[in-house]
Simulated assay, not measured.
Amino acid sequence: MKQLVLSMIAYAVQRDVDATQLCKLAGIDLTALKRKNAALVTAQQLQDLWLNASRLTNDPLFGLHFGEALQPAALGTVGEIIQSSATVGDALTHAAALTHLVTDECRIEIQRSVKTFTVKLLPATDYGATPPYAFRQLIDLLMVLVIHELDGLLLEKIVPQAVRLAYTVPDPVEYERVFRCKPSKRAGEYVLVFDIKYWDEPLLTANYELQSLLLQKVSSMPQPSAQPQTLQTRIYNYLLANSYLGVSSLNDMAANFNISPRSLQRKLKEEGVKYQDIADAVRRSLAVYYISSGNYPLKDISWMLGYNELSAFTRAFKRWTGSTPVNYQSL
């Protein structure tokens, strides 16, 4: 729970929210929260944190976007269960048993059939069709995390066959973008349905060394400051922290920050930079970091940076550094 709260605050800071103001409104002592033996955040504090984070970012879908931005945290969870899991099904089963470490508001149950497997979120309280605001945000967050956890296990973007929610979503188009399929409403259900073909897929353990490197680089980044940051800095940090399946597009970045692509481009132009410049800076930084860290296959590094062809990665790397990846690796 502590890590979830700290991650929520950090994401709000990326969205240009003052951390001190947010914590004050939620009744949370941020300095005390960072201590090793910090007291638990109360249910009321968490409710106030969700409400004020949404208000200060002017984003009614804050939980959905927060979940989309929590990919490294999802990979960290995967890292904890990978050693005891041989397949995707094993890993999901183990992860479901750890839900109580994140929240006691619901638990996760997994069911299998001949053609599909289903991830069900079972609320501790039956709220009917009008659950409290904070609970809806939490459900959005957890469901997106399940999808990203599968992404992390298989190193590909997984598309659910169905997403069912007990409430009517306020922005169906944005939910469909994040969930990768159109959500439907069904009383009492919070459900994700996936093709059974993924269940017995073996985990690609070799890839987790590269993912672990990404987490190390992210954890070494300066912690978000209470002082305002430029938009390009906030975008750079976001892209770097969420790059395990490639660098987000301009449209996805704008949607996560809850502004239009045109507005995002205009704001960056005022700072004298283009979105593509920031994206390339992130790719270059990660490429050099991965290659310098050890003898990892260049095809894996290329894939992690979002290049489907090694030749495309090679051309880009030479443009950035003046050297091919192979020559740089031998230095």
Score class of each variant (00 low, 15 high):
Asp16Pro: 07
Thr125Trp: 01
Asp277Asn: 14
Pro60Tyr: 02
Gln276Ile: 15
Arg177Cys: 10
Asn58Tyr: 09
Leu30Thr: 03
Leu250Val: 11
Tyr133Pro: 03
Thr31Met: 01
Arg112Met: 08
Thr168Gln: 13
Gly27Thr: 04
Ala32Tyr: 15
Ser184Asn: 10
Asn327Thr: 11
Leu122Phe: 12
Asn251His: 14
Ser54Tyr: 12
Ser323Phe: 00
Ile28Met: 04
Leu75Glu: 08
Ser184Phe: 06
Asp126Ala: 04
Pro131Gly: 07
Asp90Glu: 12
Arg180Gln: 13
Ser7Asp: 05
Leu121His: 09
Leu154Asp: 05
Ser220Phe: 01
Ser54Trp: 02
Leu239Asn: 01
Pro228His: 07
Lys24Thr: 09
Thr77Ile: 10
Ala124Cys: 06
Gln111Lys: 07
Val119Met: 01
Ala134His: 05
Ser292Trp: 13
Leu22Gly: 09
Arg55Asn: 10
Arg35Asp: 11
Thr31Ile: 01
Leu203Pro: 00
Val288Trp: 07
Val247Ile: 06
Pro297Ser: 12
Thr99Lys: 15
Thr103Met: 06
Tyr238Glu: 00
His94Gly: 15
Leu138Trp: 08
Glu309Trp: 15
Asp104Pro: 03
Arg315Tyr: 15
Ser7His: 04
Gly76Leu: 06
Leu239Ser: 03
Glu149Lys: 15
Ser311Gln: 13
Asp16Cys: 08
Gln229Met: 07
Tyr244Asn: 02
Trp199Glu: 00
His100Ile: 05
Leu121Asp: 01
Tyr236His: 00
Val326Ala: 12
Ser7Leu: 03
His65Ser: 09
Thr99Ile: 13
Asp171Ser: 08
Thr230Pro: 00
Ala96Phe: 13
Asn207Phe: 06
Lys185Phe: 02
Ala287Glu: 15
Arg177Asp: 09
Leu155Ile: 11
Leu165Phe: 14
Pro222Thr: 13
Lys318Gly: 01
Met304Asp: 06
Arg15Val: 06
Gln3Ser: 06
Ile147Ala: 12
Ser323Trp: 00
Ile147Phe: 13
Asp90Gln: 06
Asp277Glu: 12
Pro170His: 09
Pro170Ile: 13
Arg284Lys: 15
Val326Pro: 05
His148Val: 03
Ile301Cys: 14
Ile278Asn: 10
Val13Asp: 05
Thr230Trp: 01
Gln276Pro: 05
Val119Glu: 02
Leu25Val: 10
Gln161Ser: 12
Glu271Ser: 07
Asp300Arg: 10
Lys36Ala: 08
Gly76Asn: 13
Lys34Glu: 08
Ile158Pro: 00
His65Tyr: 11
Gly152Val: 07
Tyr289Leu: 14
Leu145Glu: 00
Thr130Val: 00
Val169Glu: 10
Tyr198Ile: 02
